[in-house]
Design a binder for these strands. Structure first.
Lengths: 122, 122
DNA sequence: TTTCCATGTTAGAAAACCTAACATGGTTTG
DNA sequence: CAAACCATGTTAGGTTTTCTAACATGGAAA
């Protein structure tokens, strides 16, 4: 995860800030969490902490609702999105594994400097 | 001001978040404000609200202090920065005024379509 | 040494947030 | 239609967070 995505996923906003940022009410935000559509972290004292991604998602949820989708619909939508994302990530690691394997072959066959593997470079 | 700078100057973080983000103590943060080095906004209920720019500045201030600069030094430094910035902005508006003036001349002399001024294009 | 400077600590009050419960006005659904 | 459901409003009582103000402290400067 890059620096930018990391910043966007940092849980830093208490609910009051999110209310100002989104125009939603506390009730709505808490209900969306109860419905497992967003997953804010918690402070030591149990106060909700939202990330920028959470804020985006809250706005998306509200748009869906305005378009007369139900919470269950939205939950399912995000479940599918998550699966897609996970397949993508699996593809990435598969590719990395193949690359590692290839490196091994190269170094063992003596075609490459045996003390240096390409995936260690940079 | 572009969209990005606008986001960075939005006062959205309560002090607790800033504490987590910077590692500074509440005492330090409040003292830096008392010394007029940062200027957080206030919520309706009088709680401090910081922007990302404020967070950056707090970290900078702390670095200056670690380098044994005094608050007065830092205050002066930022005063100079501000002047520089203001001169720059004045330059910009001067340039705009000259351009507007030029446009007027052109349109009145009939060299340009009188119903369209170039600074209105795009 | 005395003073100053940046920060720690404490106390009491107010704001913000928490959960849980009940209320309500539109949908669906039987 | 009546009953059930859904998204949201409202209220109450309790906890956490933040506020200001004041006094304490250790190291640097005068």
């Amino acid at each position: 995860m890059g620096e930018k995505e990391l910043r966007k996923s940092m849980a830093v906003f208490p609910i009051g800030t999110v209310i100002r940022l989104t125009g939603l009410t506390a009730r709505q935000i808490r209900y969306y969490e109860e419905q497992e559509l967003v997953f804010p972290k918690r402070s030591e004292g149990n106060r909700r902490l939202f990330s920028l991604n959470d804020v985006d998602r809250l706005l998306d949820i509200h748009d869906f609702l305005k378009d007369r989708f139900t919470m269950a619909d939205i939950r399912q939508y995000y479940a599918l999105e998550k699966e897609k994302q996970q397949r993508k990530e699996q593809e990435m690691t598969d590719r990395q594994v193949r690359r590692l394997f290839q490196d091994e072959l190269l170094s063992e066959s003596g075609l490459s400097n045996p003390t240096v593997n390409s995936h260690n470079l940079r």
